[in-house]
């Protein structure tokens, strides 16, 4: 599942007016009460239909998500190499993982990539949203231009940028033919710079969506507060900085969560753009996991790395989901 779309997900989670029915306020505690099935006279089937309908999905989730997580955790404590072997190995695979230089490269790259990708996407998203919020003529035509990259696959994005940044035939050649003959752009094959090409392509793909989130946030701000600030004589810049942006905090949080978990899950883009190279210059935990598990016959190490990824994401997502589901108690 391409992680860009996964990104929209927590956005949805934010939106949930968790559990509050929309019916106009009624007295009493009726809002707490489910319309619930009256038991009598309708039979067991009707009364339990709801649970019955939900149960396959629940079962599938328990097995395919939680069961498999446990399975992978078990593998990470086993001696598995080429194939799964269920022989206890204690923390050996974790020790091996943390003794692998490549793993450090992957983590360092994730730090660079994640940090820049999140920061630039947030900044660019907010900036374009603010620009678009200035009663722009043709906004309806511009918005889809910023948003369309999220409709396409990371593999396509990677393929396109790989060509666009092609040393020799790509940007280089364009600049040369425009007369800037000393221009070189070799980041794709430069081990020190390759990771930044991933950042560029990643930002290109996602920032439009972040822009859309911010734009919706801006549109949701109470107009009267802004009018009041204008009457108070605040210049536009000040109004944004002091009044509007602080009110966008929930959007920032949602966007941050989305970007963070997308960064950690990034896999397709690297594969298509650099294949993890040159050398291991753009290795990420996700590519590390894949290659150690499936091609380097180190399934235990791969499982251990997957567990590390899961724990990192869980550390962010679990508190977030908990607060989202908890906040608006039904």
């Amino acid at each position: 599942m391409s992680s860009k779309d996964v990104g929209m997900q927590p956005a949805g989670a934010r939106a949930a007016p968790m559990g509050l029915p929309a019916s106009p306020s009624r007295d009493d505690l009726v809002k707490q009460a489910p319309p619930g099935p009256g038991s009598g006279g309708v039979g067991w089937l009707q009364a339990n239909m709801a649970k019955l309908v939900l149960s396959p999905s629940l079962a599938v989730t328990l097995v395919f998500v939680y069961g498999f997580i446990v399975w992978t955790v078990v593998l990470s404590f086993s001696t598995s190499r080429l194939l799964p072997i269920y022989k206890w190995a204690g923390l050996e695979q974790y020790a091996r993982l943390w003794a692998t230089p490549n793993w450090y490269v992957a983590i360092k790259n994730l730090g660079i990539y994640g940090g820049l990708y999140i920061a630039i996407s947030l900044f660019l998203g907010l900036f374009i949203a603010i620009l678009l919020d200035q009663r722009i003529r043709g906004e309806g035509g511009l918005r889809p231009i910023f948003l369309y990259p999220m409709a396409i696959s990371f593999i396509v994005t990677g393929t396109a940028w790989k060509w666009f940044l092609n040393p020799g035939l790509g940007l280089d050649r364009v600049m040369h033919s425009w007369g800037w003959t000393s221009f070189t752009f070799d980041w794709l094959i430069n081990p020190d710079m390759a990771i930044y090409t991933v950042v560029i392509a990643g930002v290109w793909q996602t920032s439009g969506f972040i822009m859309a989130m911010f734009l919706a946030g801006l549109r949701g701000i109470d107009n009267e507060v802004i009018k009041a600030a204008q009457i108070d004589g605040a210049p536009t810049l000040q109004i944004y900085w002091r009044i509007i942006i602080p009110q966008l905090r929930p959007v920032f949080l949602s966007a941050l969560i989305i970007l963070l978990h997308m960064a950690i899950k990034s896999y397709d883009l690297v594969i298509a753009l650099t294949g993890g190279g040159p050398g291991n210059a753009t290795e990420l935990p996700s590519t590390f996991m894949y290659s150690y598990t499936f091609t380097r016959n180190a399934m235990g190490v791969g499982a251990a790395s997957a567990v590390m990824m899961l724990m990192t994401i869980a550390a962010v997502i679990v508190p977030y989901l908990y607060s989202e589901l908890r906040e608006r108690r039904t």
Partner: peptide
């Protein structure tokens, strides 16, 4: 909050 709607709902069988 006096319970009047709840009373009505129990008569209806909705609660």
């Amino acid at each position: 909050g006096c319970g009047k709607s709840t009373l009505l709902n129990t008569i209806a069988g909705l609660e």
